[in-house]
Write a protein that binds this DNA or RNA. Structure first.
Length: 293
DNA sequence: CGTCGAGCCTGAAGGC
DNA sequence: TGCCTTCAGGCTCGAC
């Protein structure tokens, strides 16, 4: 689930459910690692505080908390969903599934639940969100993500373009799905070196990144591995539909929507990568295309 | 500086 | 049907 559009939906869901202004009356941690290592440290840091805002940068969600006294500076809960995490508000009497790693009980008989089967995600208290955001690159939906900024990020390095787009310290929010979709839209081969893109291609890539993200949002996010037996998240209202609108990701062997050629799969930056070998023509110096199937 | 492999975890899917 | 293997939307650390 979780790349930028999906994280945005989570933030909107929590905000629309009215958790802002609610006080955390109790904290339950069933997997300490999910809460940063110590259930006690996390619980004592957040219990009693009031939620002031919910926001995000890239794939990180921040639940901002008020100060707990005159000498207390407040803080924020930084949430990263990683592979399988979900974050949502639910009635306190809704039965637990057994996969809730952290539960924040609110003062209106509801919970904020951090549900995460694979335990990769994190929900950690920080005094200041800059501890996280200092290490993150530009958010691609922010106004400061311009074509010239992108050109600067790409031109200074000679990395495989896909590896660079996945690097959260460069651009924060793109994951495997939206990266593949953006590169396809821009007609760029995932292995092309970042500093070999023409100005026109950089502009195309900028537009493609924005448009795949906006499309994902307007389609309610992307869900893969859906189908029977898929777990239902309590409290979820919107249905992700963007998986039905992907051009290349997960479509090995299907026809490219532009040219009709077979979609292929290669491995880039140790990640499964889907592309159209006709529309995404290799340009410049590309290493090792032998992995192409 | 850039790439690679391992590790963190569990459930689903595919092969036999 | 059941067992075993492989794979997965992410990120970090250490090695080369």
């Amino acid at each position: 689930m979780p790349e930028l559009p999906e994280v945005l939906m989570v933030v909107q869901g929590l905000t629309n459910n009215g958790i802002i202004g609610r006080r955390i009356t109790q904290t339950t941690v069933t997997w300490p690692r999910s809460a940063g290592g110590s259930a006690e440290v996390f619980s004592s840091a957040v219990t009693g505080r009031t939620i002031q805002a919910v926001r995000r940068h890239g794939k990180y969600i921040f639940i901002d908390l008020d100060s707990a006294g005159n000498l207390d500076p407040g803080g924020t809960i930084a949430v990263h969903l990683r592979m399988s995490g979900r974050l949502y508000a639910a009635p306190a009497d809704l039965p637990l599934t057994g996969y809730e790693r952290v539960v924040l009980s609110l003062d209106d008989h509801r919970d904020v639940r951090f549900y995460d089967p694979r335990k990769f995600g994190r929900m950690v208290f920080y005094r200041d969100s800059s501890a996280i955001t200092d290490r993150l690159g530009v958010d691609p939906l922010n106004d400061d993500f311009t074509p010239s900024v992108l050109a600067g990020l790409l031109g200074g390095r000679k990395r495989q373009i896909k590896a660079l787009l996945l690097d959260q310290s460069v651009i924060a929010g793109l994951g495997n799905i939206y990266t593949d979709e953006a590169l396809w839209r821009a007609g760029i081969h995932p292995l092309q070196r970042s500093n070999t893109l023409t100005a026109g291609k950089v502009d195309s890539l900028h537009r493609a990144i924005r448009s795949v993200l906006l499309q994902g949002i307007s389609n309610g996010g992307t869900r893969l591995g859906g189908g029977k037996g898929n777990f239902i998240v309590p409290g979820t209202t919107s249905t992700p539909r963007n998986q039905n609108h992907l051009a290349v990701f997960g479509r090995l062997g299907e026809a490219c929507p532009k040219c009709g050629n077979d979609i292929r799969r290669i491995v880039v930056a140790q990640r499964s990568t889907h592309l159209c070998p006709v529309c995404q023509v290799p340009a410049g110096e590309i290493q090792d295309l032998s992995a192409t199937q």
